[in-house]
Design a protein around this nucleic acid. Structure first.
Length: 150
DNA sequence: GCCAACGTTGGC
DNA sequence: GCCAACGTTGGC
């Protein structure tokens, strides 16, 4: 069982959207490191912090769960999609994704500011300046420490 | 909207 | 293979 944080801009897809839809294919990831985490690291049942980025109150807004193994992101084959990748093929897909299912919305957003203020979380990739990865691993200790803040 | 950080692209 | 130019992310 591993833990992850996945970022989404709430204007595009928020924890409330996931709550309403119950489940979502996490498409559009076009970063190799993030893809590798989904493809090689994620297993069904892994815990996911749903992080709101690029918004008024950036932070962890809810909990989700990995619902599938990785499979090819269909949007890479769709010429009409903003995520279309002409360099990818069905025989040799470049981009993978997982489905994520809603677990719960936190009673409040645990803000980035708050996470940065935790002495035991200073090593966490998420809180380090300039980290733009949209999918990152979280240790079990970090997972517990963050849940305890709610 | 600004800009720092950083990944990607492409000329050489 | 180097690295400048460029594009994107995301906090502020």
């Amino acid at each position: 069982m591993n833990y992850w944080v996945m970022k989404s801009e709430p204007d595009t897809f928020s924890i409330d959207d996931l709550k309403r839809k119950k489940r979502e294919a996490w498409d559009g990831v076009r970063n190799y490191q993030a893809r590798n985490f989904m493809r090689d690291g994620m297993r069904v049942g892994d815990g996911v912090f749903f992080y709101h980025s690029n918004c008024a109150e950036p932070g962890i807004a809810g909990i989700a769960e990995v619902a599938t193994d990785a499979y090819p992101d269909p949007s890479q084959f769709d010429p009409k999609s903003q995520y279309f990748d002409p360099g990818s093929s069905r025989d040799n897909p470049r981009w993978m994704l997982v489905d994520v299912k809603f677990v719960k919305k936190l009673t409040r957003v645990i803000t980035l500011k708050e996470l940065q203020a935790q002495p035991n979380l200073t090593d966490m990739a998420l809180v380090r300046k300039g980290n733009r990865l949209s999918v990152m691993p979280v240790t079990a200790a970090e997972w517990r420490a963050i849940l305890a803040l709610e």
